[in-house]
């Protein structure tokens, strides 16, 4: 057991956390042991790789020794790596082994192909971009930045989609139920248009459903609550503590859906969730160094959205903060 070292790393990070939570987080640390993903790499592959490296190392070593012996100052410049590597690899694949390698590759590709074909389809809008997806049943889904949907290649029985993030759905009418699953809720519909925002790891993990037309049935998946039937214009948030009807009108709903037009609009939203959205929309990293401002309400509207720096500059001006660039993003701090 290498406990002391492990504990030091963790305790370091936990130094600002209150004692009660500390214990709970230590438990999480313990339970998450060995949950890392391990690539499927065989030891022969690693050995072959090492052979290449060892060959190059010993060749170069001899070369530089000779240089020293030949009264030349040992030049650190060796043949560049790319020119070096190719011959080594090719030398290994000759004659029969090449045929074997070829057919093995063919079989592998086939297997991988079939596996990919049977796997659920996963679509992601990368950070800083948005995407739209057309489903086989004619429905369309618009994905906000950083959001992912997963669905079976062939619908059977129900049309079931899982969502991580935010998306706007335009569902083609059909007798087959269309179900959107988020980390904590299910939205079931027949044919309608609606928006779902569900970030499980945000400041406030919640699924927010905004219905623009038709009707949907919303069931929280981790609470024993009755499903709610929503009517157009309504917005409901599902949280761990329960569901909350969010007071909304046409204007507020328009704000919630502004992302679809590429706009950046927030009305009285917590600063921290605004920054989370900016991180996703621009694909950058934003660090807030002033914790007491995290929940401060913020209102801003950029139609269309301008550069991240411009948005942050105005935000900082309004909140009396400073900002400066950090690696892949910005940090906001007090003077």
């Amino acid at each position: 057991m290498k406990k002391p070292d492990t504990d030091k790393r963790l305790e370091d990070a936990l130094s600002d956390v209150d004692p009660e939570e500390k214990e709970a987080l230590r438990t999480m640390w313990r339970l998450s042991a060995d949950a890392d993903e391990v690539p499927n790499i065989r030891s022969e592959q690693v050995n072959a790789l090492w052979q290449n490296l060892a060959n190059v190392a010993s060749n170069q070593n001899i070369a530089s020794n000779q240089d020293i012996a030949g009264n030349q100052p040992a030049p650190p410049t060796q043949p560049s790596f790319n020119q070096d590597r190719q011959p080594i690899r090719r030398a290994k694949r000759t004659g029969i082994s090449r045929i074997w390698a070829g057919s093995a590759l063919g079989v592998m590709l086939l297997v991988v192909g079939i596996a990919l074909w049977l796997r659920p389809v996963v679509k992601t809008a990368p950070y800083g971009e948005q995407a739209s997806v057309h489903l086989p049943d004619g429905s369309t889904i618009e994905l906000n930045s950083g959001s992912t949907i997963t669905y079976p290649r062939f619908f059977s029985g129900t049309r079931s989609i899982s969502l991580h993030g935010e998306a706007y759905f335009d569902v083609t009418e059909s007798d087959v139920p269309f179900i959107v699953e988020t980390f904590n809720a299910n939205v079931q519909v027949l044919g309608t248009t609606f928006n779902v925002k569900a970030w499980p790891s945000g400041w406030q993990p919640e699924s927010v459903v905004t219905l623009t037309s038709g009707s949907v049935r919303l069931s929280p998946s981790t609470l024993s609550e009755e499903p709610l039937v929503m009517t157009p214009g309504q917005t409901i948030a599902v949280r761990q503590e329960g569901t909350e009807m969010i007071e909304s009108d046409a204007e507020k709903n328009e704000h919630l859906l502004a992302w679809r037009k590429g706009e950046l609009v927030f009305k009285d939203q917590k600063l921290i969730s605004v920054l989370e959205e900016i991180e996703r929309r621009y694909g950058i990293n934003v660090e807030l160094r002033v914790n007491q401002l995290a929940e401060k309400g913020v209102t801003l509207a950029y139609r269309p959205a301008t550069s991240a720096e411009n948005v942050l500059e105005n935000l900082c001006h309004a909140l009396n903060l400073q900002y400066r660039p950090i690696s892949n993003g910005y940090e906001l701090f007090e003077e």
Binding site: V122, T124, A125, T148, T150, S162, F183
Partner: peptide, 16 residues
């Protein structure tokens, strides 16, 4: 890349 990236492996199902 993003097409093949598995981000949410049906986590809701798991929870239930």
């Amino acid at each position: 890349m993003y097409d093949t990236e598995l981000v949410t492996e049906n986590s809701t199902e798991v929870t239930e």
